[in-house]
Every structure is written in structure tokens, then in C-alpha cells.
């Protein structure tokens, strides 16, 4: 795992704060990596927010759901990159990871639900479904509950990119 220097991400015009990368197999060797990474990054980026504790807790929750989705649904081999960026009140998380067509379709379907008119109903349905939560529940929660803007795309190297834009602090609070 290495941290890149500050600068602009090639994939976004927001100033970059942290860049982590590791092999997807290494990441998926232990479930607690999701919790550890989300907790670590939340600690790093919570300073200078309106309420650092509250922000850290929300950020960690949101990022953990994204990482858990990737942990469960990803391609066979390649690198997982996690880039966090910020401008003002907007926090952007970009996860880039290996994904074959089938994996990509899972995310495509999930994002489709997030952007659907009945996203809230779909979220409740998934939340109380008989079977255990799949990759889409965390994304649905981010879209419905955190009002996150989610997007996916393909990278030139064949991996996929999952982007979440979050505004976790209400300036009027």
C-alpha cells in the first residue's frame, strides 16, 4: 500500500488528498481490510471539517459500504486503487478495480437502481429481503440515505472505476 503525492487525479478535476493501492487478492484476503481502510482514510480526511468526529464516522460508514461491495464483487486479478478527493463540501471517492463483463454488469444494475425513480422502495426491499445483502444494497444506501452521486466507467487498462460523490456535512447545521 502506498500513498501518492498530492496533486490532481488523472480521472477527476478535484484536488487529490490520498491515493492507496494494493493487489485485489491482498485486499480480499481479509474482510477486516474494509473496516481498517475505511477507518484509516476517514481519520485522515476528517480534519478541518465542521465536526471532525461526526464527519469521520459518516465517511467511514460510506466508504466501508463501497469497499465491502468491491470485496464481494470484483474481477480475478489486478490492482485496487482508492483515491479520495475534495473540493469544498464535496468529497469524492474513486475505487478502481479489476472487473470482467459480468462484474461490471452487477454494478451497472446497482447504479441503475440507485438512479431509478423508485430507488427508495428498492432500497427498503433490499434491506429487508430474505436473502443476505448483495453488492447493490450498500450502493443503494449511499444513493438514498447519503444522497451520494454514483457513477461507473471503464478504464483504459480494462479495470472499472466506481465513483461516489458525497456531501456529508450540512453547512446549515
Amino acid at each position: 500500500m502506498q500513498a501518492a503525492s498530492e496533486g490532481m487525479s488523472p480521472n477527476s478535476d478535484l484536488p487529490q488528498m490520498i491515493h492507496l493501492d494494493l493487489d485485489i487478492k491482498e485486499f480480499c484476503s481479509d474482510w477486516t481490510h474494509c473496516d481498517l481502510m475505511s477507518g484509516y482514510l476517514a481519520r485522515m480526511v476528517c480534519h478541518n471539517r465542521l465536526d471532525s468526529l461526526l464527519f469521520s464516522n459518516l465517511y467511514s460508514s460510506a466508504l466501508n459500504e463501497l469497499l465491502e461491495a468491491v470485496y464481494r464483487t470484483h474481477g480475478v486479478s489486478g490492482k485496487l486503487e482508492c483515491v479520495v478527493q475534495r473540493r469544498g463540501n464535496l468529497d469524492r471517492i474513486i475505487l478502481t478495480f479489476p472487473a470482467d463483463d459480468e462484474t461490471y454488469r452487477v454494478y451497472e444494475e446497482a447504479i441503475g437502481k440507485v438512479n431509478a425513480d423508485n430507488a427508495e422502495a428498492l432500497y427498503l426491499e433490499a434491506l429487508f429481503a430474505d436473502q443476505e445483502p448483495g453488492a447493490s444494497l450498500g450502493l443503494l444506501e449511499l444513493g438514498v440515505d447519503y444522497d451520494a452521486k454514483l457513477a461507473i466507467g471503464r478504464c483504459e487498462d480494462g479495470r472499472m472505476r466506481l465513483t461516489a460523490d458525497l456531501a456529508l456535512e450540512d453547512e446549515t447545521e
Binding site: 467511514s60 460508514s61 466501508n64 459500504e65 434491506l127 429487508f128 429481503a129 443476505e132 445483502p133 444494497l137
Partner: peptide, 17 residues
């Protein structure tokens, strides 16, 4: 309860329901 993921919420929420 400081942190909770959807797996845990699903289990607990469904049990309460």
C-alpha cells in the same frame, strides 16, 4: 453502536421486524 454495516443491519432489522 459506533459502526454498523448492512449485513448487520439486515440481520438485526429483520429480527426486530
Amino acid at each position: 453502536l459506533v459502526r454498523m454495516n448492512n449485513v448487520a443491519f439486515h440481520a438485526l432489522g429483520c429480527k426486530i421486524l
